[in-house]
Design a binder for these strands. Structure first.
Lengths: 183, 183
DNA sequence: TCCTTCATGTAACTAGTTACATGATTAT
DNA sequence: ATAATCATGTAACTAGTTACATGAAGGA
């Protein structure tokens, strides 16, 4: 079976702690979603596929009459994950940003109209940085609650996001200054 | 008619200079593709749609018996573009990176296996920075050839890419150092 | 009582990529 | 000659999002 990026997100999260599809979504939303997002529409069918392939196993543990399927990574699943992680061949670092597109073409509008655009982008990145900081808190709380270890690499990657957005906000502030100066 | 991001990439590029679908792809590949990529599979159908909507107009100018449709933005097209550019409401800054995903889960492999991973990411960003610099050259050459002006905002956004990738490469070098130090 | 969270899943849709098909022109 | 570039387009596929449908448990 071919594994997609969504498969690896799921496998990776399950390698740290077993959980339901719902749990997976909750955790992904405060961690991997900043560099690889996944939705319920991918999670549930993918969990089924991974179970059939023997990479994860499921245990039914309903709360009263409310269903709950707890998934756990298998030895085969862990091997597949390790193989993928260790492979240095990789795709590109992809950025998709409508705002950058607008700015690139912003000579079609007047400089007075460009200013609010620049302020909006800077604000967006300041907010994203703050948001990520909060997410780091939540992520660590989950780990604490579950008694799982708080890995250095997790902290590093989450702080990466904060630093990146701070750098971006600063870059836009600088651009703003350069454009004003020019006039 | 609803305009997509691909529509605005096309409209934006045509606002600077008329050209064929092929031209558009060539230009996009050394400019907008770093924050919004488009493929032939989107360009040709989209040009048809935009023509029907009256936002661009087409002029047939074959070279011998080889077809060539040159598209030009209309007044309505320019207005639609301006409206979109001036709108400060925007989507998110999206990053998709398999390598970040691998690193996030890299505690499943040994530290000796993680090192080549870090080196690969750093190298990738150094190469991306060099690549972007070359693209800036190519983009400016096209402008020079066509006699169109070399806008400050273009230079800024293209240098944004170079600076971003340099920052990223440096960040990974720093991470590498921090992880080694810890051991 | 009512709102939020937990929980699972499918269906329809949108965006985007890749492969295919075709063929002329130009530079080496 | 022949390889690279110019040029247009469609078809099939893959990935991913959003909306819908359903309903229980828990807290305010």
């Amino acid at each position: 079976m071919e594994l997609t990026h969504a498969s690896y997100v799921i496998l990776g999260l399950l390698s740290e702690r077993p959980g339901s599809g719902y749990d997976l979504k909750r955790t992904a939303d405060v961690s991997t979603r900043h560099f690889w997002a996944i939705s319920f529409g991918q999670i549930y069918p993918e969990l089924k596929r991974l179970t059939e392939a023997g990479l994860v196993e499921v245990e039914k543990s309903p709360t009263g009459s409310r269903l709950r399927n707890v998934y756990r990574i298998t030895e085969a699943g862990r091997e597949a994950l390790e193989l993928w992680v260790a492979d240095t061949a990789t795709g590109p670092f992809e950025v998709r940003d409508e705002m950058l597109l607008k700015l690139f073409f912003s000579d079609v509008i007047a400089p007075e109209e460009r200013r609010p655009l620049l302020q909006a982008v800077e604000a967006r990145h300041r907010m994203a940085a703050a948001d990520l900081k909060a997410h780091g808190q939540k992520f660590r709380q989950t780990h604490a609650r579950e008694g799982t270890q708080d890995l250095q690499i997790h902290k590093e990657i989450l702080s990466f996001g904060v630093e990146l957005h701070t750098w971006l906000a600063d870059w836009y502030a600088g651009l703003h200054a350069r454009l004003e100066e020019k006039r």
